[in-house]
Nucleic acid binder design. Sequence first.
DNA 1: TATTGTTATACTCTATAACTATA
DNA 2: TATAGTTATAGAGTATAACAATA
Lengths: 164, 164
Amino acid sequence: MANPVKQRKANQSQETTPLMDFKRAEKEPFMSMLRELAQTYQAFCAYDEPHIRELGLTPPQFDVIATLGNTSGMFMNQLAEKTLVTKGTLTGIIDRLEQKGLVRRKVPPENRRCFLIVLTPEGERVFEDVFPAHISYLKKRFGQLTEYELTHIKSALQRLREIL
Amino acid sequence: MANPVKQRKANQSQETTPLMDFKRAEKEPFMSMLRELAQTYQAFCAYDEPHIRELGLTPPQFDVIATLGNTSGMFMNQLAEKTLVTKGTLTGIIDRLEQKGLVRRKVPPENRRCFLIVLTPEGERVFEDVFPAHISYLKKRFGQLTEYELTHIKSALQRLREIL
DNA sequence: TATTGTTATACTCTATAACTATA
DNA sequence: TATAGTTATAGAGTATAACAATA
């Protein structure tokens, strides 16, 4: 899990949604707003993801740990629904987390078709230790926002999600 | 390029940033705002991407076409910077677009180390035809927003990006 | 027969590092 | 030597479909 040094020059992240440079788009007033959404989210990921990867986790893996934290476990199908991946994909993610010793598949006696996925003690430790650290990391930036600004931004985003 | 029917039950998209279910997070006021950001962006992708894929393109491929449209071509390094991928990754993306006949590598005589990537006539056609179609598709949803709402949302996002 | 999850298959993207060709 | 881009390598995620085991 060597600390990767990216070759890219830009200060940026993973996925790019194609709203960046479509000039005709300017005719539509909503396009500049959507471009702003994409850029803002990408800027957030560019800040967020390297810290997650330093912890030796990928974003989907982190998501699974976060989802399992403070629960008594979840079944594959529940977990897939929560984390928005298909069951086949989740199998691979859980496999890798199991290899890392962070989760465990438990077969419940009452229904031996399914697995209850639970955090191992090591997984709990990650959830307890590493997550607060990540939040502190985020706080460095987002702590700057006033409560008023936060509410404001949040309600703008909610309005946007509403129509989707 | 068969029309894929996703197995997932949830109405959702690709990548999930791990901000969904981390309960301790609630202690920090900014966390709910960040969760809203992630959910809103994901909801957008869930709406946006299937339409792009119906056109036979992946999001990064669409991004390249969009970036090349209305230009006289760009070099690999410029294109990599614009689309925020590394040069090695871009090679593969351009390869696949070339296979599809949408872009072409032109060797400029004055510097034979580099390639000018240009849209083929077919690529132009995609840019001219398919993009407006995609915008109409987006308009179905975002056309609902008033100009006042748009400005409001956009400035909220800008404020957020400012601190990143 | 229906449900749960795995496996098989295939593809795209991601990144780094070593390499080739040109300058 | 420096630059532009490819190639090699490796790994993660994505999806679908076929399958096995259980119910």
